[in-house]
Amino acid sequence: MIADGLGRAIAFRLASGQAHELPHAVPLLDQLPSMPKWVVGDRGCTSHALREHIWDMGARPAIPPQRHEASVACPNWIYNNRNQVERL
C-alpha cells in the first residue's frame, strides 16, 4: 500500500501468500499523482535499487537499513512519522 502524509490510501497491490511486498514498491511509486519530497518505508523495504529509484524520481528515501547492513541516511524526524501509514 502507498499512502500520502496524512495516511490516506493512494494505491495498493496484493502480494500472494508468503511473497515479499518489495517487488510491488516500484509500480506503486509509479502510481503517485505527484512527486513526493520523501518516501518513507520500513526495514522490510530495504533495497539499494529501491533507494536509487526513489532518488531518480526526485524524492528522498527514508528507509532504514537492516540491522546487519551498513548505515544509510534515514532522518529520524521523518521516519518516526511512518505510523500515519502503518495505522491505515
Rank of each mutant, 00 (worst) to 15 (best):
I63W: 05
Y79M: 08
R82L: 08
I54V: 11
L32Y: 05
W55T: 07
A9V: 14
R67I: 03
N81G: 08
C45F: 15
Q18T: 09
V72T: 11
C45K: 01
L50V: 09
M57H: 03
P23N: 06
L6E: 15
A73V: 07
C74S: 05
L32F: 08
P23R: 08
M57I: 02
R13E: 15
A11F: 02
I63H: 03
K37E: 15
F12G: 06
E86T: 02
P27K: 13
N83W: 15
L22N: 03
S16M: 06
A59T: 13
K37Y: 05
A25S: 11
H53S: 03
D30Y: 00
I10K: 00
E21S: 11
T46R: 06
V85Q: 03
P75R: 13
L32C: 07
E86S: 08
P65T: 08
S16A: 14
G7H: 08
R82E: 01
R67L: 09
P23D: 04
L14Q: 14
E21K: 11
H48P: 01
R43N: 00
P64K: 01
N81V: 13
E69R: 15
I78K: 05
C74Y: 07
A15T: 13
S47I: 01
G17I: 00
R43G: 09
L32N: 04
G7L: 06
G5T: 06
R87V: 14
S71N: 12
A19G: 01
V72S: 02
R8G: 01
A3D: 01
P36C: 07
R60M: 10
F12V: 08
G17M: 02
P23W: 01
V85C: 11
R60L: 13
W77L: 07
A49M: 04
D56V: 00
D4P: 02
S34A: 15
A70R: 15
V26P: 00
P36R: 06
L6T: 15
L22R: 10
V40R: 14
S47R: 02
R8D: 10
L29A: 09
L28H: 05
A9Q: 12
A25I: 06
Q66H: 13
N81H: 15
P33F: 01
W55Q: 09
A19I: 02
V85H: 00
N76A: 12
H24C: 03
R67S: 12
L50N: 10
V72R: 12
V85F: 03
A73Q: 07
P36F: 05
A62T: 08
L32V: 04
L88E: 03
V72L: 13
G41H: 04
G17Y: 01
N83V: 09
G44C: 10
I2M: 07
L32R: 08
P65S: 09
S71K: 14
L6H: 14
I63R: 04
A62K: 03
